[in-house]
């Protein structure tokens, strides 16, 4: 779009396209518009106060289930655990088959086959983290191999991590190139680019990383691995959505967004949906363009839905912990 890749010394490198006047709404990669922290946080605080009652609440919560990438990314993950989670993704609440299914299951590469098998025919996608998740600090060849193998195992979506060290050192070309090569390695799989915003230090850096992630070929940009605090916040989500908006204004291409880590309650999920609704509008209120990366969130959403259905507050133990 704004960047074209040229070959130099056998490696992909970058050069800015000339005459970039497609839209001044979209500023080229290395000079994204600045972000004002105070005003961003004021805006999301105001959106978080939207009052969602009855039908709006139920519809929002049901939508949030369909947007969930139900996630387990632990060293102790086993096929049994993954199968249980897959089952939950397909049938979030046995007593109400109208709920769900979730958008995807998100696992480590070694669990992709198990998940793929468990989810066969359900329409639930398998997402795999790759690229030496969560730090990304391995040689690029290993990271690409990680991606290719996950895709070979059957992953529909790849959640990669960017090299935050390179990002913070100002080596944006390296960050870009790794994303672009990862995208190539994905083949038909969709690519989500994890910025790990909690390590980037400022909204300006989040904005810049978002620009790079989009320009280098990400289909989605994603806040966090879930392994670093702070993970997803409404503030970084807004800044990322604004980047997506500018890209849309400039190109018409719709990039997806995935907050991950730290979204634990139904109330939070609704707040995220409000931010999406009032920043990007109807088109993004869809699992194709918005996902929640979460594990604990689903049960809280289910609990709130049951509360709305029955009128009574629910107990946590009434919901299966998978």
């Amino acid at each position: 779009m704004y960047l074209r890749r040229v070959k130099s010394n056998g490696h992909d490198s970058l050069a800015r396209a000339n005459g970039d006047s497609v839209s001044r709404a979209y500023t080229p990669l290395f000079a994204p518009p600045p972000v004002d922290q105070v005003a961003v946080e004021e805006r999301v605080a105001s959106l978080a106060k939207r009052s969602l009652k009855k039908g709006a609440k139920v519809a929002g919560l049901k939508l949030s289930i369909r947007m969930m990438d139900l996630t387990t990314l632990e060293g102790k993950d086993t096929p049994g655990k993954v199968r249980a989670l897959c089952n939950k993704a397909m049938h979030p609440l046995d007593s109400d088959p109208s709920l769900g299914p979730c958008a995807a299951i998100c696992v480590y590469p070694n669990m992709v086959k198990v998940a793929k098998e468990a989810l066969r025919g359900s329409g639930v996608f398998v997402a795999s983290v790759a690229t030496a998740f969560p730090s990304g600090l391995s040689p690029i060849e290993i990271k690409l191999d990680d991606v290719r193998r996950a895709v070979d195992f059957g992953a529909d979506e790849i959640d990669m991590v960017i090299d935050r060290g390179a990002m913070l050192m100002g080596d944006y070309a390296k960050v870009f190139d790794e994303i672009a090569r990862t995208k190539d390695a994905c083949g038909k799989a969709h690519l989500k680019v994890i910025l790990e915003t909690g390590e980037l230090g400022s909204y300006d850096m989040v904005r810049k990383a978002s620009e790079i992630g989009i320009a280098a070929g990400g289909d989605f940009i994603k806040t966090s691995t879930g392994k670093v605090q702070p993970a997803a916040t409404l503030g970084v989500t807004l800044v990322m959505l604004e980047t997506i908006r500018d890209h849309y204004y400039a190109t018409g291409r719709k990039i997806g967004m995935k907050p991950a880590g730290g979204v634990r309650t139904a109330k939070q999920a609704l707040q995220y949906l409000v931010v999406v609704k009032e920043t990007l509008g109807d088109a993004w209120l869809d699992p194709d363009l918005f996902r929640f990366g979460a594990s604990a969130l689903l049960n809280d959403v289910l609990m709130q839905l049951e509360k709305e259905r029955t009128g009574n507050y629910q107990a946590a133990e009434d919901f299966s912990k998978d």
């Binding site: 004002d36 922290q37 105070v38 005003a39 400022s202 300006d204």
Partner: peptide
């Protein structure tokens, strides 16, 4: 009276 933002 002047209000200046404090943020990063």
């Amino acid at each position: 009276s002047i209000w200046h933002p404090v943020g990063v």
